[in-house]
């Protein structure tokens, strides 16, 4: 009797949670689709940048947050995506949509080739190897002049003309599309059999193998997915920025930024990296405005404080708060059922 009432109460709660999530998702989608109509060109650029970094942080989350492999050198795939798009559009004359998809696939294919040897390394060694990879690809881009124009770089055609808002709009929607696809993939990872394999590898790779998980293949697929979305973001970025060279396309500062964002938001969660990207970008803008001369120092201080105060990231903090709230809510109702 008591059990039946309790479980129906819990089912009711679950239904409410699911419908609340659905309403929230639809509202968010509408806001994101209409956002360009309300923002100035300046804020539209910042928002597009948030979408790009959220994608990079989320893609990094697949290999680092879920699988436990700190792939700081993901900038290599960002650059490969950017260059692949630039070459496909300017030299092969491909249409934009096909070029974007192919650029993502090029980054994924590149990852599949270099992934097998590098994924044999673990921990710091893996992290350093990926950084070396990024530097190597940058040098390659600078020296393969016949393909990449070397240090001169490649100029790309613009997609739109007119006011600053109109110019930025197509890139905003493209970035949004890439981010949504990346989040959908991460969500799938978080609930699927494949994702359980990745989380087992993160916890203990040897044990994971003993449970029947093909660790080599799982790690490789995780990194290839990560590289694919990173490459897509690089491709859209190249279109948006209209000029790429080795220095800007393989910029390790980008890696610092997306990894800080993912860490702040919460690794191994779907919402975390997106929230982290939003927080860091807004913080950067606010601090930049308020402390013009020393904004980098203040930003660094803010990030240190956040990491110290919430080591599990934003999502952990939210989960803890939610758990406390649920406990407080659950207590009186449990008492009621006893009567």
């Amino acid at each position: 009797m008591l059990e039946a009432r309790l479980s129906s109460f819990l089912r009711e709660g679950q239904r409410l949670q699911v419908s609340a999530a659905a309403v929230g998702a639809v509202a968010l989608a509408v806001v994101l689709l209409l956002l360009p109509n309300w923002l100035s060109g300046y804020w539209l650029r910042i928002t597009t940048s948030v979408l790009m970094f959220a994608t990079l942080a989320q893609a990094w989350n697949i290999i680092t947050g879920f699988t436990g492999y700190p792939a700081f050198g993901n900038t290599a795939f960002f650059g490969v995506g950017a260059y692949a798009l630039a070459i496909l559009v300017t030299k092969a004359g491909l249409g934009i949509p096909a070029a974007i998809v192919l650029a993502g696939l090029a980054a994924a294919a590149f990852c599949a080739v270099i992934g097998l040897p590098i994924l044999r390394l673990q921990g710091h060694y893996f992290a350093i190897a990926t950084l070396a990879l990024s530097l190597f690809v940058r040098e390659a881009a600078a020296n393969l002049g016949w393909l990449t124009n070397g240090a001169i770089g490649i100029v790309l055609p613009t997609l739109a003309s007119g006011s600053p808002e109109e110019i930025t709009r197509p890139y905003y929607y493209l970035m949004l599309l890439v981010l949504v696809a990346c989040c959908a993939c991460t969500w799938w990872v978080s609930v699927s059999r494949f994702g359980y394999g990745l989380r087992s590898i993160k916890a203990d790779e040897d044990a994971a193998a003993c449970f029947g998980i093909n660790t080599t293949l799982s790690k490789l697929v995780a990194w290839v997915l990560s590289a694919f979305f990173t490459g897509l973001a690089g491709a859209v970025w190249a279109l948006w920025i209209t000029f790429i060279d080795p220095q800007s396309a393989f910029n390790l500062a980008i890696a610092v930024k997306f990894s800080v964002m993912a860490l702040l938001g919460g690794l191994g969660t779907v919402a975390g990296p997106v929230l982290g990207a939003l927080l860091v970008e807004v913080l950067t803008q606010a601090i930049w405005g308020a402390f013009y001369a020393v904004h980098l120092a203040v930003l660094g201080l803010a990030i240190m404080l956040i990491v110290l105060l919430m080591p599990g990231g934003l999502m952990q903090l939210l989960r803890d708060r939610l758990a406390t709230a649920k406990r407080l809510l659950a207590t009186p109702s449990a008492k009621e059922s006893w009567r």
Partner: peptide
């Protein structure tokens, strides 16, 4: 024993069913 941290008890056991024989 190396329980897979970040996973609940039942999720740890699910890994066995998902990937074992």
């Amino acid at each position: 024993v190396k329980p897979l941290r970040d996973l609940s008890v039942i999720e740890n056991v699910m890994v066995g069913a998902l990937f074992g024989r």
